[in-house]
Every structure is written in C-alpha cells, then in structure tokens.
Computed example of a mutant assay.
Amino acid sequence: MPCIAIVFFHKKIYYSIGTVNLIGGYGIFAYIYFIDQGERFPYFLEDYWGNIINFTACQFIFFFVFFITNSRTEKLKLYYEQIQRTERLKNTGQLAAAVAHEIRNPITVVKGFLQLYEEDQLIPMKSKQHFQLMLDELDLAEKVISDFLSLAKPNTEKTPVSNVNDTVHSVVELLSSYASANNIIFSLSIHDNINVHCSKVEMKQLLVNFIKNAIEATDKKDGIIKISTELHESKLHLLIEDNGIGMDNEEMEKIGTPFYSLKSNGTGLGLMICYNIIENYNGSIKFSSEKGKGTKVTIQFQIAR
C-alpha cells in the first residue's frame, strides 16, 4: 500500500495509507498474539518479535524512500519556478530596453521643442498655458521609460541601505487618503531600527505597488490592510496582508508574468519591476492567497548589520 502512494508523490495519500497500514499491521499482530494464539498462524509466533521488527523496518524504509523522493521533487519544482521567473525577467528586460530606447528619442525631441517654444517671446502667453502641463506629462512618460529600463539594467552600484520602519510609515502616510476613500484602514506592526539592503526609493516603489494593489483588491466596508515584519536570522520578512477578493492557484501562478493583471486597466509590469528590484538585492517575494478571503505578500530582505 505505501508503494502505491509513493508512485503518486502525494503527501496526504502516503500519510493516509501509511497510517492505515501501520494500524492494520499492528492490529493483525495483536490479533495473532492475544486471540489466535498460533492456531491458524503458528509460523508468526515462531519468531513473533522478529516479524514485528521486520514489518516496522519495512515501513521505515518506505517512509525513507518517500521522504527522499518527495524532497527531491520539491527542490526540482522550486528550481523550475526560479528558472521560469528568471526567464520572464530576462525576456521582459530585453523587451523593455528595446521599446524604451525607441520611445525615448522622439520624446526628447518633442520635449526640447516645447521648452524652446515656451521661451519664445513671439508666441502669445495664451497659447503657452498648456505647455507646462505637456512638459509634466512628458516627464512622467520619461519616468515610466526609466522604470522599464530598470528591468534590463543590472545593479552595479554599492548596495544601499534603508530603514524599514521609516519607509513603511512614509508610504502609509502617502496612501492613507487613497485608503480612506475606499473605507480601508491600516494596521502596522513594524520593528524599530531595522535596516535592510535596498535603496529607499526602490523600497518605496515596492511598497506603493503592493499596498496600492491591496487597497484596490479590498472592496469590503471593513477592509483592513495589515503590515508587519518578522525577523528570521539574517533576513527580514515584510508582510502585507489584506482581506480582499483573493486569488486562486491558477491566478497566483501567472503573477509576475508580463502584461498579466487582474485589474481591468493594469499591465502587470509593476510586479515585474518589483521582482527585478528585490532580486537585485538577493531577496524574494512570495504570495499566499485564498479566493474570497484575501492575499498575503511576503517580501524577504537581507538585514544590514
């Protein structure tokens, strides 16, 4: 019976069958010893304890084989997921670099002419009233392009350090009005004086993306977003948890894929940038979610001693 469970590489099936096998096996031994007393199965009593030891050893061997094969399967699965994520980042980075390069040049030309016309005294002021707005929008477009390029540009600078508590409170203050408009409150439990390897600007970018997603995924009147930290040796886990609509397993598998988003007007590139940022600092991002109950994001940082 345990051999059948090993074929499926399924923990619940193995443990269920293994438990039934142990109870049944020891139950038979008890029946032979106390009730049968060697009438129908005399050969069992000839070496009663030897048979029990043999049966127990077989179960242990089955468990050992299952444990080794299951551990290997889990490692291969994790390795495969890492390869997929790396490949997605590589492809998106190349795409982002190519598109951004082609778009940046015409934007620079248009921005240059607008600045030139803005200073031209021959053009009436009434015609210039929207020039600044256009320049601001072009600046925003350039910032978006820079974000695209950050997907392809390797981080060669010295690893910066930022304070988690200060950065989290700064982002929460920034998004508090947006959360209030959606009847959502924040619950914070952050360690003091913990610095991690990540620039303050990029950490803000990470938090804004995840907290904004949590706000938009929470449509309840009693919406709450919990932000907390946990220490694990040399690593800090930053947890962002909401009680929103949640995701199923199929949706979670596609998270981080270019141009995949659960929002009607989303592009999915925000999460790609987040993955790229955190991997530059040897961190990780993990999702756990249940449909209708909410989502928890765990961002792992390296603590700066």
Rank of each mutant, 00 (worst) to 15 (best):
Y281D: 09
G268V: 01
I277T: 08
N282H: 14
N265R: 14
S264N: 14
I278Q: 04
I277W: 08
I277S: 11
I285Y: 02
G266N: 03
L269T: 02
S284K: 04
N282R: 15
I273S: 00
L269F: 03
G266E: 01
M272P: 04
L271H: 02
I278P: 04
N280V: 07
I255N: 07
S264K: 15
T267G: 04
P258A: 08
L269V: 05
N280H: 10
Y275D: 11
N265K: 12
Y260K: 13
M272D: 06
N280T: 14
M272Y: 01
P258G: 05
C274P: 06
S284Y: 01
I285W: 02
G268K: 03
C274N: 15
I277H: 05
S284N: 11
G270R: 11
G283T: 08
Y275P: 07
E279A: 06
F259M: 11
L269N: 07
K263A: 12
Y275V: 04
Y260F: 15
S264E: 14
Y260L: 08
P258N: 07
I255Q: 11
N280S: 14
G256P: 05
G266P: 01
N282S: 14
S284P: 05
Y275I: 05
G283P: 01
Y281S: 11
T267W: 09
K263E: 12
P258L: 08
